[in-house]
Computed example of a mutant assay.
Amino acid sequence: MIKLQDVSVIRQGRPTLDNVSFEINKGEQWAIIGPNGAGKSTMLSLFATTTLPSKGDVFIMGHKVGTIEVSKLREHMGYVTAHHQLDWPMTARDIVLTAFTNTLETPMRWVASSEQLAIANAQLEKFGLTQVADTTWRGLSQGELGRCFLARAALTKPSLLLLDEPAAGLDLAAREQVLDLISELRIEDPELTSVMITHHLEELPSTTTHAALMAHGKIVAQGSAEVILTSENLSETFGIPINVNYSHGRWSTRSGK
């Protein structure tokens, strides 16, 4: 599904990604973890085709980026981020409907068909958002907004789901709702491939299969999540003692001091 070959991204004369090679196969659920400035967001933007490499090659769903219209690739992607910047007073329903236009905001003069409205309303119900369907995004809680973006990303049954800190800023209940929904998407479609970036192991859904640890623009460890997400590896990646606990399919951390 995704392959990076000797990829570097240079910004302001400095590599935010430094000669990275990486591969993700269909059906795998990856977590990319590391401290601020490690290169996680740059990596995800390569997967989303919003950033091009300064060096090396990026392949998405078997196509080399730069040899195919990115709009064709994005038709098969879902993208969720807590950092979407919305300017217009869009409602929860409007946000979900933009899955059909593959835009962050409703295009001018675009009107949803009755069939599209029915599909969006069904998606709102599935994600527990029917009661706030006509509420503008400023009136939504962080949890409701997070579920809106997840509902939008899942609407068109993507092959690749990209998750940029989808639980960031959520309270405990809202976080667990979002993580349960992510797990349900994998259960519904075992071939769905997903990549999540986060700082916190507590934000990983139970369906996570693989993990990569990043520091200073490089991948320092990658493989099976249960093998990679250890106290030793996390302590080395973050540069401080960290104890990792794994129980009932979920991870947690605390200071190793």
Rank of each mutant, 00 (worst) to 15 (best):
R74H: 06
T230M: 07
E191G: 09
E176C: 07
F238L: 09
H76M: 10
R109D: 15
R152D: 00
K72D: 15
I182T: 02
L155V: 03
K26N: 14
E232N: 13
V96D: 00
G13W: 07
T103P: 02
G217F: 03
S183Q: 09
N102V: 12
A112V: 02
L155W: 00
T253I: 12
F238K: 04
L170T: 02
A151F: 01
E188C: 11
S21R: 08
T135W: 08
T81V: 06
N102C: 14
D134I: 07
A122R: 10
A82Y: 04
L163Y: 01
S247T: 14
S247L: 15
N245A: 15
N233R: 08
N19H: 15
L160I: 04
D164L: 05
Q5P: 07
L140E: 01
D134P: 06
A31M: 05
L52K: 14
G27Q: 05
V227M: 14
G27C: 08
V70W: 06
A82S: 15
K3V: 12
M90F: 09
H216F: 13
L124W: 00
F47V: 05
A120L: 04
P89F: 09
K3M: 13
A82G: 09
E191Q: 15
G27S: 10
E202L: 14
G56H: 02
N102I: 14
K40T: 04
K3I: 13
T156H: 02
T237L: 10
A151G: 00
